[in-house]
Write a protein that binds this DNA or RNA. Sequence first.
DNA 1: GAGTTTGAAACT
DNA 2: CAGTTTCAAACTC
Length: 784
Amino acid sequence: MDVVSPELINLLPDEIMDTEAIIAEEVPVSAAQPCDVAPVPMETDAPVTTVTAQNPQLCATLTPSPLRSGLPSQLTLVVSSASSSPSSTLAFKPMFATSTATSTRTTASLAGASVPAGGGLQKLSPGSFAISAANHQIILNKVAEATKTSGMGVSASTAQVIKQDGQKLLVTTIGKSGQPIMLQLPQKSVLGQASGDGKSPAPQYKVVTIGGRTELKPVMGSPGSPLPVSALQAQQLKTLQKAQVSSAAPIKYIITKTVSKGLTSQTTVSPVIAGRVLNSPVMSTKTISISESLNTSLHKKIAISPLKSPSKLTVVSVASQTPNATQKTMGVPVNMALGQQILTVHQPAAVSPSKGVSNQSAAQSLKPVQTVTMGGFKTIIPLATQPNVQQIQGSRFTYVRLVTSTTANPTTLQAGGPTTSTMQTAKPMVVNAGTVRMSVPIAPAQTMKQMVPKSITTTTQVMTNAQTQQRLIMPATSLPQIQPNFTNLPPGTVLAPAPGTGNVGYAVVPAQYVTQLQQSSLVTMASSSGFHTPTGVQAQARLPVNGLVTATDSSTRPRKPCNCTKSQCLKLYCDCFANGEFCNNCNCNNCFNNLEHETERLKAIKTCLDRNPGAFKPKIGKGKQGESDRRHSKGCNCKRSGCLKNYCECYEAKIMCSSICKCVGCKNFEESPERKTLMHLADAAEVRVQQQTAAKTKLSSQISDLLTRTTPISTSGGGRLPYTFVTKEVVEATCECLLDQARQTELSGQPQALAERLILEEFGHCLMRIISSAGKAKSDCINC
DNA sequence: GAGTTTGAAACT
DNA sequence: CAGTTTCAAACTC
């Protein structure tokens, strides 16, 4: 039973906790459902996860698991294995301690009696999902909070892998936007390395988001091990895509992850527009190589946070590790599917936020794949492909509601859901069982764990009942809830489990902080466990008007640190707070603008919103025609600065004061000579700075080049001779030699051509002597 | 770096 | 809504 902090519950918006709509979709899973019989729900309004397998047929349903504790998660795959290994079960445990019992229960609940509880599953890693070839099921189970990873008694020796030749696992999720996600295990895929079978071909795990196009798009990031897409898969994909409803050309990502021999993996995130992979350099296709080892689990999660811009996309990837070396684990990035699904982004309509329809109702209880646009915020991050993810979109941010899979019953599920299958030939099993339990941040669980110093305590528990597994049980007591207006919450805010509250509770987490925490998490994990992660999948993708996605590292986004001393950074005095960001690397004192004080922070946000519903809305509204029409939403009230100092918000924003302003003695207007003078000065200063910077860069380059080219010719040691040997005296001596040579040739009556040649030869001799002397001097210096 | 100025935010 | 206070950034020395 999960315990929710009443204090946090009070702060939870109703929208977040609304589960009624989801409950209706909650259906048990019929494990006996044959893959070839189960139709594939294609309704885009419903979350559909389809897993198809090739040789042997491997059909599965995925219910992407929520992140980390408190994020009930369950990923279920129904496997039709030709090899029918009696006990071939594979358990992928999530990075966050997933109890063995939980996985077992999940398996039992999904597979019926075919898998005895606690017996059939082989735990390869702390719980992500399990594959049971015997009962034709693959259970991807990421249980909600796992308080303890260890103690599960999982033995690597018992772990088994699926070794069917040519086996492929295709997981396709189709959502509202018609974006299938394929999880593929091609070529004798081995989903586990725990067996230590060195001869087994490198298992590959592939997650692909396909755009609206009918053809399967290339997958990147699988060097040396291309993931073949069989005709069947292609057909399935085509079928899926034909069923897609989305007419718009969505911007999507293709994420591929290849796990090679459980040692390395690469993840590539490529923005895709209308199913087309954008190879443009500016698209910042990100490839991440992540090391994995047998005793480490790689858990990747991708979070999207729109941040302050309607079209911003924050991608967070966290690699974590199971320190318990006694467990041979195979990090199967179950969350990759989740992350990728979240990552799928629709191209928002280029509409000014001011034009948008304001919907104060904020979050809505929607079908898992339904998105909500509010406050004119046109950015859409469709979670359509995510069966258990819902989007709650605010004016400047997007919430994602993760739907917890309970006991997925394909039959019931199909009945309950609008999904339909068009992949009969692919023999897919579709499980569309999702129950919204809570809105959770897209932030990685590890990140959240890292963020929250208060570790999950015993209050967080995973439901042991198979039917209610991973559900979050909310307190029966009716608690007053704050209802933060989603349209007015700080931009980029996502909801995160409150620290110390386990699976429940929410913290308003600025999107940027997700990446901030991500960075720190990576560092922490790497340093603590020796797990080296070259880079994390984190980027902020911005969706400009032209629809192209440009990924920028959030770390590069400048932000001035605040210096608050009395406001605790919980008032709009604090720029960080006002911008919806956590304080990070600030100089503030007694800062409460962090996750450790998310309760206070939520209250402060609520207070601000009560005082001013638009408190977190940008002050500088975008005009219809660009910056020329930008103006302060409220106008300034300057009295003494003439609106020509940065005290003035208009001037600071480099915009003119408008009629809205109540300033006195304003000089910040178009024809103002003072303003023009200041502008010219500012421009000139800027030019000077740029020139200086360019000059310094050029000089540095030249010096570096010079140092490089001064490599001695005659030095045997290969060291670089100091160019300082070419002193003034040396130059003069050289010139004297050359002049002397010239005189000699002139006196001897040599032709001019020959004279020039002799002079040049003399010059060469001089250089050789200089180099030789320099080398000797250097050698002498070293010897002494 | 300390002190002052300034105007937005917060408060009454 | 207006006046006052608080606050932190901008600015000056």
